[in-house]
C-alpha cells in the first residue's frame, strides 16, 4: 500500500505527470476531437466519467484476482470492464443528448481503445493505491486529460484563421502545438512533494 497524500496524487496526475502531455496516453482523441472547444470539453467529461467507473471496477477486480491468485488475467478482465463501461456511457449519452452523440461520432466507442483509461487502471495497480487514492487518481487524470484537450482546442480554434503554408496544416501542426504545451507543463515539475 502506498501512503501518498491525496492532494499530491491529484496534482501529480493532473499537472505534473499529465496523462496526455507527459505519458502520451490518449493521443488519438487528443488529435481527433480537439478541433472545437465545446466538443473537447464534453469529450473530456465523458472520459473522466469512464475513468472514474473503470478505476473503481479495476480496484475491485485486482483484489479479486489477487485473492484467487490469477494475476495473468488482469489485463483481459480490465479491458472487458472498460469495454462494457464505454457501452454504458454510449447508451446514456445517446439517450440524453443526441447532439453530443453525433458530435463525438466514432470517438465515443473508441474511448474503449483510449490508452489513458487502461493506463490509469494499470498504473494504480502498479503503484498499489488504496480505494480513496484510486478515486482521486482517476479524477486527477480525468481533469488533466480535459485540461489538455481544452487548451489544445482553444489554440486550434485560433489557428483556423492564421495564414499557414499547406504542408504544415493538419496533424503536423497539432503535434507541434502539443510539443510546446508539453514544454509548458514541464514547468509544473517543481510542484511535486
Amino acid at each position: 500500500m502506498s501512503d501518498e497524500p491525496l492532494w499530491s496524487i491529484f496534482i501529480g496526475a493532473s499537472l505534473i505527470n499529465n496523462f496526455v502531455l507527459a505519458y502520451f496516453l490518449g493521443i488519438c482523441p487528443f488529435l481527433g476531437v480537439s478541433g472545437k472547444l465545446q466538443t473537447a470539453t464534453r469529450m473530456g467529461l465523458a472520459v473522466t466519467f469512464v475513468m472514474l467507473v473503470s478505476s473503481t471496477c479495476a480496484f475491485g477486480i485486482n483484489r479479486l484476482l489477487i485473492a484467487i491468485d490469477a494475476p495473468f488475467l488482469r489485463l483481459i478482465s480490465f479491458i472487458a470492464v472498460i469495454a462494457s463501461t464505454v457501452q454504458l456511457v454510449e447508451m446514456f449519452i445517446k439517450k440524453f443528448s443526441p447532439t453530443l452523440f453525433r458530435a463525438l461520432g466514432i470517438f465515443l466507442p473508441l474511448i474503449t481503445t483510449n490508452c489513458a483509461i487502461l493506463g490509469l487502471a494499470l498504473f494504480q495497480t502498479n503503484k498499489g493505491y488504496g480505494f480513496a487514492q484510486c478515486l482521486v487518481y482517476a479524477v486527477g487524470a480525468g481533469a488533466g486529460f480535459t485540461l489538455a484537450l481544452v487548451l489544445m482546442a482553444g489554440l486550434r480554434e485560433k489557428l483556423e484563421l492564421a495564414l499557414l503554408p499547406d504542408v504544415i496544416r493538419g496533424t503536423a501542426l497539432t503535434l507541434m502545438i502539443a510539443g510546446l504545451l508539453s514544454i509548458c507543463f514541464m514547468g509544473f515539475a517543481g510542484l511535486g512533494a
Binding site: A172, L175, S182
Partner: peptide, 25 residues
Amino acid sequence: VVMILPSGGFFTLAGWLLLFNKLGQ
C-alpha cells in the same frame, strides 16, 4: 535534452510528418 523529454517526441513526429507531407505534395 529536450529530444529525450516528452515534448521531443511530439516535435520529432511533427518533423517526420512534415517531410512526408512535402514528399507527397
